[in-house]
Amino acid sequence: MSYAYLFKYIIIGDTGVGKSCLLLQFTDKRFQPVHDLTIGVEFGARMITIDNKPIKLQIWDTAGQESFRSITRSYYRGAAGALLVYDITRRETFNHLASWLEDARQHANANMTIMLIGNKCDLAHRRAVSTEEGEQFAKEHGLIFMECSAKTAQNVEEAFIKTAATIYKKIQDGVFDVSNESYGIKVGYGGIQGNATGRDASTSQSGACCG
């Protein structure tokens, strides 16, 4: 399928915060409480439209456990966007955000767009982190912020798309050299950058599930 751009996303955060569920909700529009825990990394992909341009999101869903950090760090390379997820019902997952962020800053592209997501907002009765705290953290660190529920799908679509819109705006503003793939952006057939067109990902991306 042709696209103007392909953005690589990574989803990071503590284990059990709902990273895989967010991905599945976004790509398949369903919530599956019973799925195998992620070992290493899993992939998902979906097309979205921004400014009338088809954009393909290739999303890397990483394993959350601390032990695997040294491996998962290598997946940050060349990501244009990151969803940093915590669970609003588990305080410790919020407390660990700083260390995740440090990892991301250190191993990813400096221009990577990071969206902070407080997941499981459907479980308001068990809330352990207030919305304000989330907002405050995001503000301090220059992140976009949203509370979502992978279960009810609330804000899931928005989170992925808003991140993409931010990346897209950065492209428009000339922040990225889109011909340099280390920014996590590939230009497809529908691309506007004349010299970069023709670099379709149909070979390298064959078999990708396009939602």
């Binding site: 290493g40 992939f43 290598s74 997946y75 390379r77 060349g78 070979t203 390298s204 078999g207 990708a208």
Partner: peptide, 15 residues
């Protein structure tokens, strides 16, 4: 043959 880079290779192996 397909000149897979790290990302593409990882995805390919996963699949």
């Amino acid at each position: 043959g397909e000149q897979m880079d790290f990302d593409t290779l990882l995805k390919f192996i996963n699949e």
